[in-house]
Each structure stands twice: as structure tokens, then as C-alpha cells.
């Protein structure tokens, strides 16, 4: 579930409020958005993908809360890690050679 909105990273653009398909976030007057309906989070990671500031962290646990902190996530370099892995960053991501990608066709 969504667990962390980094106060240091978030610029309050509210894109997450808009893109979350299950309406988990709510805008807050004069501040950054809040996680208003955490139970509704379906752990789809779309908010992370769309966050331009890599300020969100969705723990992979769909039903329990891990209480991870922003400081721990900074230390493990996890903010923005999914966006990097799908190539939604400048320059995209390198594709392995075609003969390596063919390995997936044989099973």
C-alpha cells in the first residue's frame, strides 16, 4: 500500500490525487496531499510512476502496513526506483540484446 509521501520531495502538484485509480489521496489546502483512504490502495504503483518528483513510496504489501519511513527509503535509494525500472526517465532504459530477449520465448 501507499505508505510515504516525502515532505522533502513533494512539491504539492497533486498529480497523484488525479491519477490514483482508487482515489486514495486528497489535496490539502496550502500543503502537500495526504493519504486519505489508505485501505482503498490496491498497490498498483501507478502513483509512483506518475510522480514527477519521486516523492511517493508504495510498499509491496497489499494488506498490511510496514511503517517504513522516508529516511529509510532515502538510504535504500528506493524513491523513484520503479519509475527508473520501467524507463520513465530521461534517456529511457537500455534494452538487452535481441538474442538475450529471445530467451523468454523458449519456455
Amino acid at each position: 500500500m501507499i505508505e510515504v509521501i516525502s515532505e522533502d520531495r513533494c512539491t504539492g502538484c497533486n498529480i497523484c490525487v488525479n491519477v490514483c485509480p482508487t482515489n486514495v489521496f486528497a489535496p490539502a489546502a496550502g500543503g502537500i496531499p495526504v493519504i486519505a483512504r489508505q485501505d482503498d490502495c490496491q498497490t498498483c504503483f501507478m502513483c509512483e510512476v506518475y510522480c514527477p518528483d519521486d516523492a511517493l513510496y508504495v510498499a509491496p504489501h497489499a494488506t498490511e502496513i510496514t511503517h517504513v519511513t522516508a529516511a529509510e527509503l532515502e538510504e535504500r535509494d528506493l524513491f523513484g526506483s520503479y519509475r527508473r525500472s520501467i524507463g520513465w526517465i530521461r534517456g529511457g532504459r537500455p534494452r538487452p540484446a535481441p538474442e538475450i530477449m529471445q530467451r523468454l520465448e523458449h519456455r
Binding site: 509491496p60 525500472s85 523468454l104
Partner: peptide, 25 residues
């Protein structure tokens, strides 16, 4: 365990979200 190193490389590119929860835990 039936995937070798090159298959792993291909898998990580083909479906990054498969590895997302595993990497995070």
C-alpha cells in the same frame, strides 16, 4: 531456479513490475 543469468536479464527488462515487490522486500 530454471532461469539462467541471461534469462534473468531478459525478464527484468520484459516485466519490471514482477521484480518490484521482490526487490523491495
Amino acid at each position: 531456479d530454471k532461469a539462467d543469468a541471461e534469462t534473468e536479464q531478459a525478464m527484468r527488462y520484459a516485466q519490471p513490475n514482477f521484480f518490484l515487490p521482490l526487490d523491495r522486500v
